[in-house]
Each structure stands twice: as C-alpha cells, then as structure tokens.
C-alpha cells in the first residue's frame, strides 16, 4: 500500500482532520444561527444534496482517519506480522462497511426526500 508509506499516512491523517474540523465548524455554525434543531429542520438539512454529501464525506474521513490511527497503534504495540495484518484488515473492513452503511442511509432518504 504505497499510499500509506512514509509521510503520506501522516499527511492524510492531518488532511482528514482538517476536513473534519471544517465540517464540525460548519455544523456548529448552522446550529448557532438557529438553535433548536427540530426533526423537520434536521431532516431537510441532512437530506439536501449538500447535507447528504457532507455527511458521507464526514464519515469517510472519520473512517480513514480512524484506520490510520489504528495502524499507528498497531505499528507500536502489535508486532507479529500476521496478527498486525489481521487487526488492520478486520478494522479496515468494518470501517469500510460503516461508510457503506452511511451511504445507503443517505441514499435511501435522498431518493425519497429530494
């Protein structure tokens, strides 16, 4: 996986963090402008094109950032090569499945609520 050699994983870890910071700030600003987040408003926001895309991007960066972090932990503490590969594969598959799940959630409501 050349993508995660040397500085690339380190840069990706920081880029994903920056994206999350931006999205969290955006979410916080949206809440602050009109505080009570009732169901109607949340549904309209989340299922709009912008909302749905940003939610998927948010979860995708969380998954990638999380996997890089788990890899850092495994590089430090899990030394047997097979065990490390197993941990990274299992965590990677689960995180990927979570992102797919979020995409499906958003697609279902996007189709119905547009």
């Amino acid at each position: 996986m050349r993508l995660f050699l040397g500085q690339r994983a380190w840069v990706l870890q920081r880029l994903t963090a920056l994206v999350q910071l931006f999205l969290l700030a955006l979410g916080a600003a949206t809440l602050l402008i009109a505080p009570p987040l009732a169901y109607e408003r949340w549904y309209a926001l989340a299922t709009s094109t912008h909302g749905a895309v940003l939610i998927v991007v948010f979860f995708a960066t969380l998954a990638l950032h999380g996997w890089i972090g788990v890899r850092d932990i495994a590089l430090d503490y899990v030394h047997p090569p097979f065990l490390r590969l197993a941990v990274l594969t299992v965590v990677g598959v689960i995180l990927f499945a979570i992102v797919i799940r979020v995409v499906l959630t958003m697609a279902a409501h996007f189709a119905g609520g547009a």
Binding site: F4, L5, G6, Q7, A9, W10, D72, L75, D76
Partner: peptide, 11 residues
C-alpha cells in the same frame, strides 16, 4: 527519513 518507522513513529 521518509519512512513509517525511521521518522514517522514520532507522535
């Protein structure tokens, strides 16, 4: 130095 271990183990 551009290596996961040599430099980038630093946290």
């Amino acid at each position: 130095l551009d290596d996961v271990y040599r430099l980038f183990r630093c946290r």
